[in-house]
Amino acid sequence: PRAQGGDAAAMFKYALILMEGEGVPRDKVKADDYMRKAAEGGNPSAEFNWAQLLIADNPGEKGLKLALPFYEKSAEQGIADSQYAVAQIYATLKDLPEEKKQLAREWMARAARAGFDTAQLDLGIWLVNGVGGPKDYVKGFEWLKLAANGGNVAAQNKLAHLYINAIGTPPNPIEAAKWYVLSRRAGLADPSLEDFYLGIEDDQQKAAIEAANKFRRR
Rank of each mutant, 00 (worst) to 15 (best):
G168C: 09
N165M: 06
V29A: 15
A85C: 06
K158N: 15
G168T: 05
A9S: 10
D57P: 02
L193Y: 15
Y14R: 14
A166P: 01
A104H: 11
Y180W: 11
I125W: 07
D190S: 15
A154G: 00
Q88V: 14
Y180N: 08
D122G: 06
G140H: 08
K30F: 02
S74C: 07
G78W: 04
Y163R: 13
A111W: 05
A91E: 00
N172F: 02
Y34S: 11
G199K: 12
L96N: 08
N152C: 05
N129T: 05
R36S: 11
N165T: 05
M19N: 13
K139Y: 01
E210A: 12
L146N: 11
E142N: 15
G5W: 03
A114H: 03
I164K: 12
A208V: 04
P170F: 14
D136W: 06
E47V: 13
K30S: 04
D195I: 11
G140F: 08
A8K: 10
E194H: 10
E175C: 07
N172E: 05
A15N: 07
P171W: 03
A3M: 10
A3T: 11
R105Y: 07
E175N: 08
P170Q: 10
E210F: 03
D122I: 10
F196P: 01
V128R: 12
F196Q: 04
G132W: 12
D202Q: 12
S192W: 01
W143D: 00
D122L: 12
V86I: 09
A148Q: 00
I125F: 07
P173L: 09
G124M: 04
N49D: 02
E201Q: 12
F48G: 00
L123C: 01
A91L: 00
A46W: 06
A80Q: 05
L68M: 15
A212N: 03
F12Y: 15
I200P: 01
N172H: 13
R216D: 00
